[in-house]
Design a binder for these strands. Structure first.
Lengths: 118, 118, 118, 118
DNA sequence: GTGGTCTAGACCACG
DNA sequence: GTGGTCTAGACCACG
């Protein structure tokens, strides 16, 4: 499904959360889709079930997924919306911090437009 | 000089780094200005000298400051530049992630302009 | 695993770094080998955990080792190479300083050959 | 006479010692030559007299200089010899460490010869 | 089990 | 005065 970086300073459970929301962003996981089982994913990633379980609980807590007893975790209807919302929130925060660094509104806009070439 | 949040999950030494770069951003600390001594700042923040010392070493390693033996730490000439550069790099990264979340260039620009009212 | 000299003016954490790279040089530690845990080594050397921790962070920063969350520090694949490279760099620097002291190329070569008997 | 690097982690007094022996190596200071006075050098370097004084005491202790009461410090007759001897000792030590890093005698010799082009 | 952070104190070298 | 090193303990997150 995806890989994790064991040498990273970012906790594995956090990497798993990020990867799942990334798949939702990229529409590779859609509302109603079933996530792999905890055992299965743990095995394929080579990590402990506890670690995957922790990631899944966070995803559920944050409403990206919901779980059905005995059936597993599923992508929620609001997940795509949540991804957009949190992306916007994160963007707003970064913009605000850029202002604090003395960067102007216009410079940021120029930066976005200039980025077209990348 | 500033406060730290003892409840935060962000390490104290990191908060100190952030606060110092913030003061540089806000031009409250200028190139050549002397930072408070390790002991002095530790006392005023109510933290251990080691913690302040760790923060100061990081600031020096990252070229925001330089130290003169027996005299203390001083804000470097390139500090303001560094602050801008790292802010731009951070902004670019956020923009890229926004694209990955399916947000368009135009939406981001609108967001920046809309933010005028904040 | 090894000993440290408490009388030395060389900081303990630096002695630990040196000893580890020495073991890598002597092939007693090979790529992929696990270093002892921080607590374990600290205990066996009779020093604080912090001191060992500091040494391990430097070794990791300098790419001699890498760490896996929850598992410990391991000798990196490039470690042997790094040891050689830094040894060569150090040698070159010494040669250059010898020239500055008015010693000739030939004298240095003679010195190396003469050293055979040591 | 020379400069010191205040931002260096090497103590100022040590830098002064090194600079003086460097001048002896380069024959810019010869046996019998008078070193500048402590006050004078301290002023020209912008450091404390104590610091210069400490350096001069070490140079005298190590026989690079001798002092005449009321007249100042002078380069000793054996200074050039000492410089050579300590350079050789330092070189031998580096060679030995290179061997410990698994570098062969021939590689070192090749290195010296190759260095001709630098 | 692993390492990361932190404290409160100490001692030291440098200037 | 300055920072650098170190201890002996603690608590925490991660796995």
């Amino acid at each position: 499904m995806f890989n994790i970086d064991r040498q990273s300073r970012i906790p594995i459970y956090e990497q798993i959360c990020k990867k799942v929301t990334e798949l939702i962003r990229k529409n590779e996981l859609k509302a109603g889709d079933k996530l792999p089982g905890v055992r299965e994913l743990a095995k394929s990633l080579g990590v402990s079930q506890n670690t995957v379980s922790k990631a899944f609980k966070i995803l559920e807590r944050d409403k990206f997924t919901y779980s059905l007893a005995g059936l597993g975790s599923f992508v929620s209807d609001v997940s795509t919306d949540l991804v957009r919302k949190s992306a916007f929130a994160y963007f707003d925060k970064t913009v605000k911090e850029s202002f604090e660094s003395g960067i102007s509104r216009q410079e940021l806009i120029d930066r976005i437009i200039a980025g077209k070439d990348n």
